[in-house]
Simulated assay, not measured.
Amino acid sequence: MAVVRDLPDEGQEQVLAFAEFLHVRLGGARPAAPSEPLPIPRPEEESVVRAIKRLAASYPMLDRGKMLNETSTLMAQNVIGGRPNAEVIDDLEILFRTHFEAYQASKT
């Protein structure tokens, strides 16, 4: 649909999330999360917030609630502490990968 394609990335994500919500609410099965991370490349210039969204989309199988404290701490280091985006994003990548490895280990 042209209307959805014309939305910025964040708007498109919200439309998809709402569609999934309606699908489940109206009796449809929730789509299964992939078992491997989705290959969403890291842009050269990226904010910490965008990185968190990208990583959450890359690792949809992870429970973001379990990572909230660590993610918030890293974001605060950037916003309040002035730590450079690239450093914080590197740590976020490690955080998500570590949680994914724990997720995989729990499945075996």
Rank of each mutant, 00 (worst) to 15 (best):
P39N: 08
E93N: 04
T71E: 11
K66D: 12
L55G: 10
D63S: 08
A86G: 03
E45Q: 05
F100Y: 15
P84V: 00
E101M: 14
R50A: 15
I40V: 14
F100I: 05
L95Y: 06
S72I: 01
R50Q: 14
F96I: 09
M75L: 12
Q77M: 14
E46H: 05
G82N: 09
R54F: 03
A51Q: 07
I52M: 11
E44G: 11
Q77S: 10
M61I: 06
Y59D: 01
N69S: 07
I89G: 06
L38Y: 00
T98C: 14
I94F: 11
P41V: 02
V48A: 06
L95A: 01
R97S: 15
T73E: 12
R83H: 06
K53R: 12
G65L: 04
A51D: 02
E93W: 07
P84K: 02
L74G: 02
V48T: 04
P43A: 12
E44W: 01
V49W: 04
E70T: 00
P43S: 12
R83I: 13
I94T: 14
H99W: 15
E93K: 02
E87V: 13
E87C: 01
R83T: 12
N78Y: 12
A57I: 03
G65Y: 07
T98R: 15
N69L: 10
E87K: 08
F100R: 03
P39I: 08
P84Q: 03
N85C: 08
L38C: 01
A57N: 09
A86E: 14
D63E: 11
G82T: 08
G82P: 11
P41L: 02
A86K: 13
V79C: 00
A76N: 09
S47N: 05
E101N: 11
A57G: 10
